[in-house]
């Protein structure tokens, strides 16, 4: 099966600002693909080029075998879009918005009332857009993105500004979209979101893609370090830990030790040393590197800076 989205050598500038320098990637059928990167990295611009809302200066894009610029209406009939910054008419009612959207598509649309129910909006169907909470607005935008039963769904920063609980609920919804066999393309600058939700992620910075893979492989590839944090009063502990093979660094802060090293065996080796030397510990945990660390490593800065 050919990729659902193919982008190669895409470049887009706004006047003197280079928003997307050069971006290439494929999105496979049925996966949740995430584009992650800091503010201004070019995520929205890339996505809008793929959706046919912007014309790239250079490069080729194909979505479902269509050219987003030439076949924009044909494409928009088959995709669902949620924009990063969008509003609706202040006084449009929830059901009116869904009903209006349903009338805009040539292909068969899904049952509006069922969709509202799935998104927990049935109670709000007569509410004006301006009176919805942030999470309800986001759910309405997801409903509008799903009304035409699209083959590919585009979600741009859909959980930004939501509280953790609403965020988790939206993640569940997105997993549900994938389960119905659809492809999801999303952007986020939340590493946790990417890690939990995406099958594969592309890390973008300054309009360039630095690496693409599953979150796990990215972590394995770029951050092979393991860290063990434990608490002990044993005076000989530091010396013993430094003798463990693979350990690169031991930091002691009061009674808390941070042991860093490489290799999958590090944790086993630490446990082995503890039992062999009869070291009594009052606390023990491992810290696994995550996408956040990968990002730091690849770009030399935290995504939040």
């Amino acid at each position: 099966m050919p990729p659902v989205i193919q982008a190669s050598g895409v470049r887009k500038t706004y006047g003197a600002t280079v928003a997307v320098e050069e971006v290439s990637f494929d999105v496979r059928d049925g996966e949740i693909f995430g584009l992650i990167g800091p503010n201004g990295a070019g995520k929205t611009t890339t996505m809008e080029c793929i959706e046919g809302l912007r014309t790239p200066d250079r490069g080729t894009i194909s979505v479902l075998g269509l050219d987003p610029v030439r076949d924009v209406y044909k494409l928009q009939d088959r995709i669902g879009v949620q924009l990063q910054q969008a509003q609706l008419q202040k006084r449009i009612k929830v059901w009116e918005a869904v009903d209006l959207w349903a009338s805009l598509y040539q292909k068969k649309t899904v049952d509006a009332e069922r969709l509202l129910e799935q998104l927990g909006l049935t109670e709000k169907r007569n509410a004006w857009f301006m009176n919805l909470s942030g999470g309800q607005k986001q759910r309405l935008f997801i409903a509008l993105a799903l009304i035409n039963d699209p083959e590919v769904v585009f979600l741009d920063e859909l959980t930004t500004g939501l509280d953790p609980q609403a965020r988790r609920a939206i993640w569940e919804l997105v997993r549900g979209i994938r389960e119905r066999g659809k492809t999801v393309f999303l952007t986020t600058h939340l590493m946790e979101e990417a890690e939990r939700l995406c099958d594969r992620v592309a890390i973008i910075e300054h309009g360039r893609i630095i690496d693409i893979d599953t979150p796990l492989s990215l972590v394995k590839r770029h951050c092979p370090e393991r860290t063990v944090v434990l608490a002990t009063n044993d005076p000989s502990a530091a010396e013993r830990f430094r003798a463990i093979p693979g350990v690169q660094e031991v930091v002691c802060n009061h009674a808390e030790f941070t042991i860093r090293g490489r290799g999958d065996d590090l944790v086993t080796e630490v446990i082995h040393s503890l039992s062999e030397n009869h070291i009594r510990v009052t606390d023990f945990r491992t810290v696994l590197p995550n996408l956040e660390d990968v990002f730091l490593k690849l770009t030399g800065r935290s995504i939040r800076d």
């Binding site: 928009q76 879009v81 969008a86 598509y105």
Partner: peptide
């Protein structure tokens, strides 16, 4: 912009 992201 949101309306333009439909076949309208």
């Amino acid at each position: 912009k949101r309306l333009r992201a439909t076949p309208l």
